[in-house]
Computed example of a mutant assay.
Amino acid sequence: MTQPFRPVLSPLMAEDIVKTALLEDLGRAGDITTYATIGPEKTAKAALNSREDGVIAGMELARTAFRLVDPSVVFHALVADGDRATAGTPLIRVEGAARSILSAERVALNFLMHLSGVASYTARFADEIAHTSVRVTCTRKTLPGLRAVEKYAVRLGGGSNHRFGLDDAILIKDNHIAVAGGVAQAILAARAYAGHLVRIEVEVDNLDQMKEALTARPDAILLDNMGPDLLREAVEINRTHGGFSPADYAAAPGRVILEASGNVNLQTIRAIAETGVDFISTSKITMAAPTLDIGLDVEIL
C-alpha cells in the first residue's frame, strides 16, 4: 500500500490558534513575574527535550509562539512533526532574549505536549491493527477551538480523519432517523439534498437497519456498538448484497464502506479490526490522550 505523505499544518491556522493562547496567558500586563525578575539585557539559550517516547506533533505552533512573542528569538527545530522520539531526545533549541523565551515557553509546551500526546496515543491504536488494512479514525469529539490541530496530530500518529464539522459530510444518526421516518427515507432525502461530492454515512444499531440502509446505497455505514460476531456478519452482508466474491470484495468499486464504533479501546481494537471492517472510529484518541512529557531547560547567558 502506498504510504501517504505527512499532513501539513497551515501557518495561517497556527498563527490564529497560538495568538489566542498567548493573549489568554499574557493577559493585560504581560508576564509580570519575568518582567519583575529578569532584566531586559539578559539573553538565554533553552532546549525543549522529550522526557518519554512518543510521536512529535505541534512544532509549527511552538515556533509560532516564540515568534509572536519576539521575532528575534532564534528557533532551531531538531525533529519534524511525525517523527518518533525516544526519552531524552532534544526537539528544539531556542536562543534570544531571556524574557521572551520565558514568556513564550508555556504556550509552546502546551501545544507540543498536548498534540504530541494525541499523535502518540493514536499511534498506539494504529500499531495494534497494523497487521490489517483497517484505519483508526477520530471523531468530532475534540477540544473546542483545537479540532483542526488535533485532527492533524491524529494523522501524524497514523490515524485517519473523520469529518471536520457538520458542514463537510452527512452523518445520519439515530435521532435523524427517528425524525425522518426511517433509515432508507433519511438516506434518500440526504441524497436528494447533497451535492455530488458530499459523502453520506448512516449510523445503524442492528443488522436489520443495515440491510435497510443498503437498499438506499449510502457511501458508508457506521456500525454502532456491535461486537465482533455481529461485525463479521455485517461484513458478510455487505459483501453478498453487492454480489462481490471474497477475493474482489476489498477493491470492489461502489461497495459500501463499513465503520465500526463503540467500546473501542486498546484492548478491543484488534478484535474489531480483524472482523474485516474498513474503519474504526473512537473519540479516545483525541479526548483521552495523555500529554507527552516535554520539558524546557534554560541557560542564562
Rank of each mutant, 00 (worst) to 15 (best):
Q3R: 12
P4Y: 04
P4K: 03
R6L: 15
L9E: 03
D16P: 00
K19R: 15
K19W: 09
T20I: 15
L22M: 10
D25R: 03
A29D: 10
A29V: 04
D31W: 07
D31R: 11
Y35F: 12
P40E: 10
A46Y: 00
A46H: 00
A46Q: 00
S50L: 01
D53Y: 00
L61V: 03
R63L: 05
A65N: 07
H76W: 02
H76D: 14
A77T: 08
L78T: 03
V79N: 04
D83A: 14
D83I: 08
R84Y: 05
A87V: 07
P90K: 00
E95S: 13
E95L: 02
A97F: 01
L102N: 07
V107W: 04
L112Q: 02
L115N: 12
Y121N: 05
Y121G: 04
A123R: 15
R124C: 03
E128M: 13
E128D: 10
V136G: 11
V136K: 07
L146E: 02
A148C: 02
V149C: 13
E150L: 09
V154N: 11
G157N: 07
G157R: 12
G158E: 06
S160I: 00
N161M: 04
N161P: 03
F164A: 12
D168H: 07
L171I: 13
V179Q: 09
V183D: 02
A184H: 03
I187Y: 09
I187N: 11
A190R: 13
A190E: 14
Y193F: 14
G195E: 14
G195P: 08
H196P: 06
R199F: 12
E201K: 01
N206L: 10
L207N: 06
L207S: 10
D208H: 13
Q209I: 03
E212T: 13
A216W: 07
A216L: 11
I221D: 07
I221M: 05
G227W: 08
A234S: 14
V235P: 09
H241E: 13
G243I: 08
F244V: 02
S245T: 15
P246Y: 11
A250G: 07
A251W: 01
P253S: 04
I257A: 12
S261H: 08
S261N: 08
N265D: 15
N265V: 03
Q267C: 00
T268R: 10
R270F: 01
R270L: 08
A271I: 04
T275A: 06
S281D: 04
S283F: 01
K284W: 10
I285G: 06
A289F: 09
T291N: 11
L292R: 01
D297V: 02
